[in-house]
Each structure stands twice: as structure tokens, then as C-alpha cells.
Simulated assay, not measured.
Amino acid sequence: MNSIFAREDEVLKNAISALEDNIIETDKDKELYRNLVEEYKALLEQTKRITRISDMIGNKLNCVRRSVDKASKIDFLTNIYNRRYFNELLIKEWKSCEESKSFLSILMIDVDKFKRYNDIYGHLSGDKCLKRISEEIKNVVKESNDIVSRYGGEEFIVLIPNSDLEKAKSMAENLRKNIELLGIVHQGSEKYKIVTVSIGIASAIPNENLSPEKLINLADDALYRAKNCGRNRVSL
């Protein structure tokens, strides 16, 4: 590309020189000048084509970059954030709530007896089940700054900035009820015969004596209690 631009400069310089020196007198000079101008026009068109191609390639690269960026953040099955990106957002929201001295709440959600569901209905049905549950979680968690993520396997996590324990508990109970109301048949669930979830909640104002990992562990402990108490319930 540099050689093309160099040739453009040379052609233009020669054309201007012919005009300034007032040497365009004979038919031969006119022909020379016309040739220089035509060559310049041809080079200019070539430059335009290269620029257009460059723009097209640039646009395609930007599209690919955006796609790669999205793919690095989104869980391919459920179309919600993946665990890696959730951890990034958690750190960001943690710092924000620490500065504003606001509550930050976490819901840890686990599909009850999901291994049995896969064993009975197959993994394709299991995938469909997880998709429906993730969609229902998104339907309930509607605040723009709330964050929904697949945390691993049949486990989901919700991060709720500026939310105390009561607000988090209300959201968790709505989630539990709505997923139960989906009525997804689950013969492997002896008690309920439908797909249900257990939810653990943890809430705190971030400070230097508490870490994001500790808050997640507290939510995970609460989830463990919910499962031990019979599943399909919310625990603090």
C-alpha cells in the first residue's frame, strides 16, 4: 500500500509541475499531461478500492471480536453469564457496594435431584430443563444491575447489588415458586414429582473483614441447609 501512495505523490507532483511551469503548449505536452492525470485517477480509484476492502475487513474483524467477547462471557447452553465472567462482575459490584456501604446479596440455586432427571429423561431433556429454568430466573430477576449466571452443572447464582436480606429472600421465594409452577415432570423426585430448586441466601455489606469468596461460601452453606431440610425451599 505504501508503494501505491508513493506513486500517487509522484504523479500528482509531475502534474502540478507541468501546470506551474506553463509547459503545456504542444499536443505532445497535452497528451503527457492527460496521461499523468489519467494515471493519477486510476491510482486514486485503486486506493479507494483498497480503502473499501480495508473497511470491510475491519468491520468483519470487529464483528468477530464482539462475537468472541460475548462467547467468553456467556454460557452457551443457557445464554446467561458464565462463571468466569460472573466472578469478574462480582469483584466490580463488591467494590461499588463497599464504597457506598450498601448491601450485596447472593442467591445460590440448585436444581433438586437433577442427576436423577438426566438418568431418567436423558441429557437432551436435561439441557432443555436447564434452559427453561434459566429463562424463569431471568423473568424474575428483572433489575438491570442484577446478575444471573450459570455457576456450574445444574447450579445457578444471582448477584443482587443494593439488596438487603429481606429483598433477597423475597426474590428467592418468587424464584422457587415460579420454577415449581413450571410443572416440569420429574418422576425421580419422590416427594414432588416435578422439578424444583433449593436456594441458599447470603447478604452483607462488603468490608475489609469479608471477602467475595466468603459471601459465596455463606450462600453455599445456606443452600446445603435447604437441601438437608427437604429441598424445594429457601434457606438463610
Rank of each mutant, 00 (worst) to 15 (best):
F103T: 04
K70D: 14
S105T: 03
I80E: 04
Y117K: 08
Y81S: 11
K92V: 12
A71M: 15
N118M: 05
S72D: 10
V111C: 13
Y85G: 02
K95C: 06
M56C: 04
M56W: 03
R65Q: 15
A71V: 04
G58P: 00
K101C: 04
R84L: 05
Y40C: 01
E98D: 06
N79D: 13
S54I: 03
I74H: 03
T51K: 14
A42I: 07
T78Q: 11
T51H: 09
N59K: 15
R66D: 00
I109T: 06
M56P: 00
C63Y: 03
F103Q: 11
Q46S: 08
S105C: 02
N118V: 01
R116L: 10
T47P: 07
R65T: 09
I106L: 09
L107F: 03
F76Y: 14
I53G: 01
V111L: 13
S96W: 09
D75A: 09
Y40E: 02
K115H: 02
K92F: 13
K73M: 15
E39T: 06
K73Q: 11
V64C: 03
N82D: 10
G122A: 12
R116N: 10
W94N: 12
D112F: 02
F76L: 10
S102R: 09
V111G: 08
K101E: 15
I106P: 01
F103G: 04
I80F: 06
S67K: 15
K48E: 13
N62E: 05
N79T: 14
D119N: 14
S105N: 05
Y81A: 14
E93Y: 15
N59G: 01
E39A: 02
R65G: 04
S100M: 09
C63L: 06
S67W: 08
N79V: 07
L104H: 01
K101L: 07
L77V: 04
W94M: 08
V111K: 08
K113S: 13
K41V: 13
M108P: 00
L43Q: 12
E99M: 11
L90Y: 03
I57F: 02
S105F: 02
N59W: 02
L77D: 11
A42F: 08
K101T: 10
N87K: 14
D119L: 09
N62S: 01
W94T: 08
D55A: 02
I109W: 07
Y117V: 04
Y81L: 15
N59M: 12
